[in-house]
């Protein structure tokens, strides 16, 4: 039997409204055959983790362009741990300086895509690294 399609949550934490990238990625992933849940804007880390658990997703992609990435990524990771869901991989994209990318990866963010990354690159990464969580 074929593997079921991956369920990916694309989420916009924080206050910034720059959703062009998040929406394009959501649509590209959908066109590539994934099940995509898009949270919409202005989500708190709590809301995102709740949605991820409720929707039983295989990965969470966070889009952050407000400069608050060093607060919001760790917050999401921490809440996943608290809820016993730290097996859900978190990746992300946004305007994130290289030093912060390194720091975030050390904290457990699986991958960070910065401006100029193509959707194909992101889809390729997901194909290689994300697997359906045990069902």
């Amino acid at each position: 039997m074929a593997e079921r399609p991956l369920r990916i949550l694309i989420a916009k934490p924080g206050l910034d409204g720059h959703d062009r990238g998040a929406k394009i990625i959501a649509r590209m992933l959908r066109d590539a055959g994934y099940e995509v849940i898009y949270t919409g804007l202005h989500q708190t880390p709590e809301m995102i983790v709740e949605t991820a658990i409720q929707e039983d997703v295989d990965a969470i992609g966070l889009s952050i362009l407000s400069g608050a990435h060093m607060t919001l990524f760790p917050d999401v990771l921490e809440r996943l741990r608290e809820r016993g869901a730290s097996d859900i991989p978190v990746f992300g994209g946004g305007i994130i300086p290289p030093e912060d990318v390194t720091a975030l990866k050390q904290l457990g963010v699986r991958e960070i895509f910065t401006p100029g990354a193509s959707a194909q690159e992101i889809i390729g990464w997901i194909r290689e690294h994300i697997r359906p969580r045990g069902d």
């Binding site: 708190t44 400069g67 608050a68 917050d75």
Partner: peptide
């Protein structure tokens, strides 16, 4: 609380 991490950033 919703301002956390965003004060003076953008």
């Amino acid at each position: 609380p919703r301002a956390r991490g965003e004060v003076g950033r953008e």
